[in-house]
């Protein structure tokens, strides 16, 4: 464990909590991509199946269970409890378009982590500030993992190509979002809209 990985995981946790509370408190999932949350649930389920096969640490097990439970809880908030507020018109991302590059680059098994909210922002041109904070922490989690891999490469002299390549791909998707976040959300009025 190093500081990058710990803060990355905590940012991931903060992102999940922000999204859950936003939906819960506002009783609305407007502006949230239900499809991406389903993909998160699928990704966590497939990635964390090793919960049943190998024990790594209490920390690892607890975090995996928390991520899994919160992913399914968020999906149920969107599709069951607050279904009427779900903006399915804007959630028009074609999952099959994601599956094609994923199949082609199947060694990048983390590819489905790419959040479709980023696509929804480009589609609707705006995002509520709370949603951008969620995306910011999600992006920070991926970015901090880059620091973690540099750390592990130097300290442990090991390197996991699949994790690093897929992690870099995921982080690249956040770059333009980070730019907009800092130039508009932090300095501006709070709402993020594209020019």
């Amino acid at each position: 464990m190093n500081i990058f990985r710990l803060s990355g995981d905590l940012c991931h946790l903060v992102a999940i909590i922000i999204l859950f509370l936003k939906i819960w408190k506002s009783k609305s999932c407007a502006g949230i991509s239900g499809k991406s949350q389903v993909l998160f649930a699928v990704v966590f389920t497939t990635r964390y199946l090793d919960l049943f096969t190998s024990f790594i640490s209490i920390y690892n097990t607890v975090m995996k269970v928390v991520y899994l439970a919160s992913a399914y809880a968020t999906v149920s908030l969107i599709y069951l409890r607050f279904r009427s507020t779900f903006d399915s018109e804007s959630d028009s991302f074609r999952v099959e378009f994601l599956l094609v590059p994923v199949a082609g680059l199947s060694f990048l098994e983390n590819y489905a982590f790419t959040p479709l909210e980023l696509f929804m922002i480009t589609k609707t041109g705006e995002a509520a500030s709370i949603t951008t904070h969620y995306l910011f922490f999600l992006g920070l989690y991926r970015a901090l993992y880059l620091g973690n891999w540099l750390w592990r490469y130097h300290v442990e002299e090991f390197f996991d190509q699949i994790a690093v390549v897929s992690g870099v791909v995921q982080t690249i998707f956040y770059c333009d979002f980070f730019y907009l976040y800092f130039t508009r959300v932090i300095r501006g009025s709070g709402k993020m809209s594209l020019p």
Partner: peptide, 10 residues
Amino acid sequence: LQSATYKDEL
């Protein structure tokens, strides 16, 4: 450089 799997990561 040795290859490893970071199974402990989240």
